[in-house]
Amino acid sequence: MRKRFPRLLRWVAVGAVLGVAALVIPDSAVKSTEIELVKVQRADGVDLTPEVVWILAVGSDARPGEDMTRTRGDALQLVGMNTRTGAATAIGIPRDSWVPIPGYGSSRVNAALAYGGPQLLGRTVGDLVGIQPDYVFVTRFPYFEDMVNEIGGITVHNPRPFYDENLNRKGFKSGQVHLNGYGAMAFSRIRKSLPGGDFDRSANQQRVLRGIQARVRARAAVPGFIERGVLSVMAHMHTDLSPAELFRLAQATAHVVPSKITSCVVQGSIGNVGGASVVLPYVDQARRYGNEARQDATIERC
């Protein structure tokens, strides 16, 4: 009981921060909106008591001045977290995957964000995998860099060396690599120099997510770390979630156990539609991942 008490106090503090922030942050209109966190609207609603919570994490390709929720998504990861066991899984969706978009025919999956915002993108990815996300989280890459710098950078395991003429000429060595904010962004976005192209990029995005989660978990016990993070995020976030829902998501994230994280990327063949190169995803594989992970946020094999 003594070991659990400090953690209980920490979450009481986070809850208090969320409650206060919900009152004071709307007045901070001078802050730019760098994060959008929305609850997915669907007929059966969102169950606030499931063991597994699903969030579609999206890196928006928005340029300065553009609405990040109405541009094409550059990074797409469907993340499930088991609130009971601490398990988590990420299902990567290559951005050029050619899929049906409700109401718009077929197009690249990331176009759904431009056509109908986070709600439509969530539904489109949900139709592919067979799991409708509970929430969609969208952020701009510049703020993503700031968040990584805020936590002191991250460490990832890089299976192969690679570089990019525009984003990182020096490149990334193989093995354990420490990344600052810009490095994490570049690591997540480089595609052309990777042998697997979009598939390898999606896997690198998952490595970055693992690095972020591990860093947050490692520093969670530092006094004020979680509370400052909550305030920083809320100061730049637009959301329709209540403080109670935000608190629950914060708990789910902090309780993820690194050794219980699994991740897979939906593979596919390279096709040509209207003269443009696209990924024709293996729908059966995407559905298998969804079926395996739906109940416990675990995928046994990719």
Rank of each mutant, 00 (worst) to 15 (best):
R2V: 15
R4W: 12
F5I: 15
F5W: 14
P6N: 10
L9M: 14
W11A: 10
L18C: 06
V20H: 03
A21G: 11
V24P: 02
I25T: 08
I25R: 10
S28I: 11
S28L: 14
K31M: 13
V40W: 01
R42Y: 05
G45N: 02
D47S: 13
T49E: 15
E51H: 13
V52D: 15
W54L: 01
I55K: 00
I55A: 04
D61N: 15
A62H: 01
A62M: 02
D67E: 09
M68R: 07
M68A: 07
T71H: 08
Q77L: 15
L78C: 07
V79F: 04
G80Y: 08
M81N: 10
A90E: 10
I91Q: 04
G92W: 10
I93Y: 08
I93R: 11
P94Y: 11
V99W: 07
I101N: 06
I101G: 03
G105S: 03
S107F: 12
S107I: 00
S107P: 01
R108T: 15
R108K: 15
R108N: 15
G117D: 01
L120T: 00
L120C: 00
R123A: 11
V125K: 10
G126L: 00
G126C: 00
D127G: 10
L128K: 02
I131Q: 00
I131Y: 00
P133I: 08
Y135H: 08
Y135R: 01
V136Q: 01
V136P: 02
F137N: 04
F141E: 06
P142K: 10
Y143M: 14
F144S: 14
D146A: 15
D146V: 15
V148C: 10
N149Y: 12
E150Y: 12
I151H: 08
G152E: 07
I154W: 09
T155C: 10
V156K: 08
R160I: 11
F162N: 03
Y163S: 11
Q176Y: 09
Q176C: 04
L179W: 04
N180P: 00
G181Y: 14
A186T: 12
F187E: 06
S188D: 13
R191P: 07
L194S: 05
P195C: 10
G196I: 03
G197A: 12
G197Q: 09
Q206P: 00
R207P: 05
V208C: 09
R210C: 01
G211P: 02
G211I: 02
G211E: 03
Q213L: 07
A214V: 05
R215N: 04
V216C: 02
R219W: 11
R219Q: 13
L231C: 05
M234A: 09
A235S: 14
H238R: 10
T239E: 02
L241V: 02
S242D: 05
E245R: 07
E245S: 05
F247Y: 11
L249K: 03
L249S: 02
A250C: 06
A254D: 12
V256N: 02
V257E: 10
K260L: 09
I261K: 01
S263T: 06
C264M: 04
V265E: 04
V265H: 02
V266T: 03
G268P: 06
S269W: 05
G271Q: 14
N272W: 12
V273D: 07
G274Y: 04
G275Y: 07
P281Q: 11
Y282H: 08
Q285M: 05
Q285E: 09
A286T: 09
R288C: 06
G290H: 11
N291V: 11
N291S: 12
A293Y: 05
R294P: 06
R294M: 12
Q295Y: 10
E300Q: 13
C302L: 08
